[in-house]
Amino acid sequence: MEYYDSFSLRRFHEDLERNAVSLAFHGSFSQDTIGLINISLQQNDNAKTLTKRIFSLVVEMAQNIHHYSAKKIYSEKFDREIGVGVLAISETEGYYIITSGNFIEQKDVLEIGERFEEINDMNDDELKTLYKERRKMPQRPDKPGANLGFIDIRRKSGNRINYEIIEKNNNNSFFILSAKINKSIN
């Protein structure tokens, strides 16, 4: 078959199949998008707690993209600029893996790295304490988020979070976040 451009749906599809990707979304992360992912997750027959934890990770990653992606597009329906990014749910024999990616501004690179270093080595009690301390702090001005998303991802995942920041030009870097959840929880 002849392609109209260099994008190959066949290669893309093979890649999804090979990595057992059950859901992949690229675009702006509106409320509606997250709602649809929720419906799609309900259709599997996993234990409820597992499904809800996967959804928690999706929501926190999606809302992180929504608010903080350096690339945004205007939504007429919501009358706002909404962040653009990519998110995928894949699986291995023992884990579900939720991965998100979005552009971030160069000035945010250091802070993001430091925050993961801080939480990755914490145990459950330390994470709980940090979560509760952070929740009591006042809402940060000009930031719609609760400043709890990364801690919540780390807690619900139950594993270390992997991240990668790929330097690009024009003051932007691409930020990839990857969390896994054991399938055996119930």
């Binding site: 809800k52 959804f55 928690s56 929501v59 926190e60 809402q139 988020g145 609760a146």
Partner: peptide
């Protein structure tokens, strides 16, 4: 509640 995000968690507190 059946589910709430971290942003709602702060409002509940």
């Amino acid at each position: 509640m059946t589910y709430f995000n971290t942003s709602s968690s702060r409002r509940f507190l």
